[in-house]
């Protein structure tokens, strides 16, 4: 129930931000449509720990800042590799130590989001990673990002 409430608040905030007109009629229409969306989501059983991972939110900002720094670094690295032609693609397997599916997806997406490394296949808690260069591969194999996502997940 508390998750439905949070979903309603997020949807309504998005509506108010996007609409830009705040007369009574239009705002009430927005409230009704947001409530309908929440009803549909409840009916489709979308509201669970996967659909709305509330336990991520407290530590999320810290993680996103760190991820942005990492993305910037690997962007510079990929640019250099493309310009100098210093590429030797490799493919390998890393293990993920997270417990929940959401955290695993977050880890896989973070690997893909940093240019230079892409997860190509997922099997339970083994990711097959393709890296542009052995230095990118070493970055993933050091498991720093794995520990960060584990910390983001908390003890859930």
């Amino acid at each position: 129930m508390i998750k439905s409430f949070w979903l309603f608040v997020i949807l309504l905030g998005l509506w108010l931000l996007m609409s830009g007109h705040y007369s009574v009629l239009i705002t009430s229409l927005g409230v009704v449509s947001c409530a309908f969306c929440v009803y549909l989501a409840r009916r489709a059983k979308l509201i669970d720990n996967e659909g709305l991972p509330l336990f991520f939110f407290p530590r999320l900002i810290n993680y996103i800042l760190w991820l942005f720094k990492e993305i910037f670094n690997s962007n510079v690295g990929t640019g250099k590799a493309i310009i100098t032609g210093n590429i030797s693609p490799e493919i390998f397997i890393v293990k993920s130590s997270q417990n929940t599916d959401v955290a695993r997806v977050t880890y896989a997406n973070s690997i893909t989001l940093t240019p230079g490394t892409v997860t190509t296949k997922i099997n339970k808690n083994e990711f097959e990673v393709h890296a542009l260069n052995s230095s990118f591969g070493d970055d993933v194999r050091r498991n720093l990002m794995d520990r960060k996502v584990k910390w983001l997940e908390g003890n859930n």
Binding site: I71, F72, N75, T78, G79, I82, I87, P89, I91, T112, L113, T114, P115, G116, T117, V118, T120, H130, L132
Partner: peptide, 14 residues
């Protein structure tokens, strides 16, 4: 293809 995905990722993020 697998190498080009990295370049596309550069456009998408950076």
């Amino acid at each position: 293809v697998f190498s080009r995905i990295h370049a596309a990722g550069m456009i998408d993020t950076g």
